[in-house]
Design a protein around this nucleic acid. Structure first.
Lengths: 218, 218
DNA sequence: TTAAAAAGTGAGTACTCAATCACTATAAAT
DNA sequence: ATTTATAGTGATTGAGTACTCACTTTTTAA
């Protein structure tokens, strides 16, 4: 049933993605920019080649297919989306005794900056996920799988401290994930904001705290 | 500068959109389904014709261009998106003395059902808005223009009753719009949920109330 | 009943696009 | 210096595309 065909391809790409030529870098750079602006389907390989100052054949020599060029853009982004955050932030959080609210704020700021730094790739990502069922069906579960255990551990800690409402962890995960996910998507992908100030982060934090924090509920 | 070229086209479509042939209806039906599934760019007019049991020429006889077929799908949806709600719900609200929370709940339920009934068109709408700058730049202001005065009136009423936090109305409008908008988009367009239970609506209402309601703020 | 108008057809057209391939230029290894 | 491997080229291909047009069928009006 084509089981994780995509994830296998991704693994291949990761191995090959080390030594890039100057021209390869230029191709990627231009492709990211065009895909983000006009979408994958509306971008011709000829246009990428022209703007990158490269023959069209060069693209296919390196990436084989247009589809594979897209994956070569998205995979390194995905690889960085979770693990980096995990090791830096989650550990720090578990040692220091910061509040749930402060943790959320730090977390959102951290990921916001990452997404701002990679705004174009993020846009490519969202836009393609909307169309390609395969992408959605394989990557969303993968992302959840990556994030779920860590997130569960964090929620558990804060529930025991009495800072998070006493509901099944899976339910809280869902609320958190869809809220944060929806927030990032609508900000950076749909309305293409170039910035995000602390005030807006405070807002979403307040929303979440009031939604799943265990403050007295009138 | 192509000023509201699109809105003119939309006006034309509205006038012509009355008496539809059986084949026209079938074309629209198939086009909506295919555009929603695979996106506008990835759908060939030949495929629409085939699935609709119609010659390809028939499509162009009626709609002229593929682009115009897309508009013919979106315009009636847009026309219904705001006014219907306005006349039914807003008036009712102003006479009865329902609370801000209850108003929000009713409003969200009302619009949720509308979007569920037109889920495919809504998906087409979101997907294309992401790509087409012209669409975004002309329609989003138009939508805001339509909704803004009514929304302003409502917020004003509730502010005077002391149920909504005392901030500039424009700022509150923004928070409300982006929250609700982002909520609908992430639910129905990205993660394509087929349903939405009352519990989830309660959640978003609670988020908003705690965010901009004037409850004591710890 | 007949004329005019509208709806519907489908082969044909001009064009775009991803992908190929025979080839050259450059760098690395022997 | 010579072979081998890798990077890069660009004209060519063939499948697919939106759209046209001369034509037929059906509906409406006189």
């Amino acid at each position: 049933m084509g089981n994780s065909n995509l994830l296998n391809k991704m693994a291949e790409i990761i191995q090959k993605s080390d030594n890039q030529t100057a021209k390869q870098k230029k191709i990627m750079e231009v492709a990211i920019s065009l895909f983000a602006e006009k979408g994958y389907s509306n971008t011709a390989t000829a246009e990428i080649a022209k703007l990158a100052g490269v023959a069209e054949g060069t693209i296919f020599k390196h990436y084989g297919t247009k589809e594979n060029l897209l994956l070569s853009i998205m995979v390194p982004f995905l690889k960085e989306l979770f693990p980096s955050m995990a090791d830096e932030l989650f550990e720090e959080l578990m040692t220091d005794n910061i509040s749930f609210e402060e943790f959320l704020r730090k977390f959102l700021k951290n990921r916001t900056h990452f997404l701002l730094d990679n705004q174009e790739i993020f846009q490519v990502f969202i836009k393609e996920m909307i169309y390609k069922e395969e992408l959605k069906n394989e990557l969303v579960p993968y992302i959840f799988e990556q994030a779920s255990p860590r997130l569960g551990k964090v929620i558990d800690v804060f529930q025991k401290r009495g800072e998070v409402i006493d509901l099944p962890i899976s339910q809280i995960k869902n609320v958190l994930a869809t809220t944060v996910f929806g927030f990032f998507i609508s900000r950076f992908a749909l309305l293409n904001r170039q910035y995000l100030n602390d005030e807006e982060i405070d807002h979403i934090v307040r929303f979440i705290i009031n939604g799943i924090g265990s403050a007295p509920n009138p």
